[in-house]
Computed example of a mutant assay.
Amino acid sequence: MTFLFFIISFGASAVGAICGIGGGIIIKPVLDAAGVLPIAIINFLSGCTVLAMSLYSVGRSRLAGSLPVTRETGVPLAIGAAAGGVAGKLLFSAVQSSLPHPEEAGVVQAAVLLIITAATLVYTLRKDRIETKHLTGAALCLVVGLLLGVMSSFLGIGGGPINLVVLMYLFGMRTKEAAANSLFIILLSQLTNTILMVMTVDLTVVDAVLVVGMITAGLAGGAVGHRINAHIEERHVDMLFRGLLVVIMAICCYNVVHLMGA
């Protein structure tokens, strides 16, 4: 089972680096479906893997001088997302503590993720007929980033398709530009989220080999995905992204039914 976790981390991180979705949106629901670990531990493992992958992808792009993140838009978005990462973690803790059984929070996460993923798929299929906005202003970017951080942290996915749709619709970014900015946002929001989880999760029950292995696999997947992204056309990125959304929706449906019946 441990080796399977490594394979999932590698594949999810590779696809995440290509599409700019971080990989957590794949790792989180797949591990939920496996049903072998508590929700809090899955969130922690997914968060660590996504943080490592996004750090590698953003760092490599920055060193190569090919990171299309602007001070006017990308930086305030990421700062807002970092604050949102804290708020999202607190929101998840509040929802979890309000339920009779803590594991029921997984049903809420799966249901919300299903709705968001479905809305994202609809947008990507119709985006050529939807007029995009070109919003500006640091204050507005901070607010948008805050909301993105809250949602991604609450769902434990790092960012996922939410970032891409918002960046393309509100800021008129092309697919690859949105992917790069999304990874930068994921990096900061996941950093704050992971720090909070380290402070609140009982790490004595976490298998260190599993954590290190998933992070290593995530880094390797990020390296492969970064290389592929540099040589793939935007239309192929769009096709991969849409296919991935369908798979994620199917997994979320399974998780809602499975967790509700557990």
Rank of each mutant, 00 (worst) to 15 (best):
E234L: 04
I130N: 00
M1Y: 11
A82N: 02
S189P: 05
E103D: 08
A250Q: 02
L125F: 13
S93Q: 13
M1G: 07
V247T: 06
L4D: 01
N229H: 13
Y123Q: 08
L135W: 15
V166W: 05
E104I: 03
V247G: 00
D202M: 05
G221T: 05
I157A: 00
A250C: 11
A82K: 09
G158C: 02
I18F: 11
S152E: 04
A223Y: 15
L91Q: 10
T175A: 13
G156S: 04
L142T: 13
R71D: 10
S98G: 09
G159L: 03
G22W: 08
A52W: 11
R129S: 14
G106E: 01
A208C: 01
I41A: 02
S61H: 13
G59P: 10
F184M: 10
A33T: 11
L146P: 01
I7V: 15
I162G: 00
D207P: 04
N255K: 07
F92G: 00
L167R: 08
A119P: 04
L219A: 04
F241M: 12
G16Q: 11
L114P: 06
I21C: 03
I248T: 02
V247N: 00
E103F: 08
T117S: 04
G156I: 04
E131W: 04
L203R: 07
R242V: 03
E103W: 11
G65P: 10
H134F: 13
G221K: 07
V143A: 13
F154Y: 12
G88A: 06
V198Y: 15
A250N: 00
G149A: 06
K176I: 13
V58T: 14
G137F: 09
A262W: 12
V150T: 09
S153D: 02
I21R: 03
S66N: 14
L146Q: 07
R235G: 00
T124C: 01
T70S: 15
V112R: 02
P102S: 03
S57M: 05
G80T: 08
A110D: 00
E131C: 00
G172V: 08
V107Y: 12
G225K: 05
R126M: 04
F3S: 09
V209F: 13
V246K: 06
V144S: 01
I195Q: 13
C48A: 15
H258D: 09
M173S: 05
A105N: 06
A105P: 00
G80Q: 06
N181V: 15
L113T: 08
A94M: 14
I26P: 04
V36T: 15
Y169W: 14
T175H: 10
T200Y: 10
